[in-house]
Amino acid sequence: MVDTIETDETSRLIASNKVEGTAVYNRQNERLGSIYNFMVDKKNGQVEYAVLQFGGFLGIGNDYYPLPWSILSYDTSQGGYVIDLDKDVLEQAPRYSAGNEPAYDKNYGNSVYDYYGVTYPY
């Protein structure tokens, strides 16, 4: 008999395909966008960024906003992640358009984390 492995969700873990597409709200319950993907450090396995897809209309003209994973909190009542940011602050945040991904190097990481007031861990 072959044991099945939980690949969807456990009490502590969630599969990446369930995170992608999850809504992101601010503290005012405004939907800001959704998680497009997230960036994982190859060596230590830690999630460094969640990339928020925000803006545009029907998927056209969206921008991508790397968010430090540490600023996201999962809210079970909303079924999504919550960040303590106003839309105006997010609209000024570091971002990129489709096809123009940043290098995600230490300098970029510092600039993103600094914008959100958290310490870049690497």
Rank of each mutant, 00 (worst) to 15 (best):
D8G: 01
E9V: 06
T10D: 03
T10H: 05
S11R: 03
I14L: 06
I14Y: 00
I14D: 00
A15L: 00
S16G: 13
N17S: 11
G21Y: 05
G21D: 08
T22I: 04
T22Q: 03
V24I: 13
Y25A: 09
Y25E: 03
Y25C: 05
N26H: 10
R27W: 08
R27V: 14
Q28D: 15
E30V: 10
E30D: 14
R31Y: 06
I35D: 03
Y36P: 02
Y36A: 13
Y36W: 12
Y36H: 14
N37H: 10
N37P: 00
N37D: 13
F38K: 05
F38C: 07
M39I: 15
M39C: 09
K42Y: 07
Q46P: 00
Q46M: 04
V47T: 13
E48S: 08
E48V: 09
E48W: 00
Y49G: 04
Y49E: 06
V51W: 08
L52V: 08
Q53T: 08
F54D: 14
G56T: 09
G59A: 08
G59S: 10
G59D: 11
Y65G: 03
P66D: 09
P68S: 05
W69G: 07
S70E: 15
I71N: 05
I71M: 02
Y74Q: 00
D75K: 02
D75W: 03
T76I: 01
Q78L: 15
G79Q: 00
G80E: 01
Y81D: 06
Y81N: 04
D84S: 12
D84R: 02
D84W: 05
L85T: 02
L85K: 13
D86Q: 12
D86K: 09
D88A: 14
L90P: 10
A93L: 09
P94I: 11
R95G: 03
S97P: 00
S97D: 05
S97N: 11
S97Y: 04
A98H: 06
A98V: 12
A98I: 08
G99C: 12
N100Y: 11
P102Y: 09
A103R: 14
A103C: 02
Y104D: 12
D105V: 06
D105A: 06
K106L: 12
Y108L: 04
G109F: 01
G109R: 04
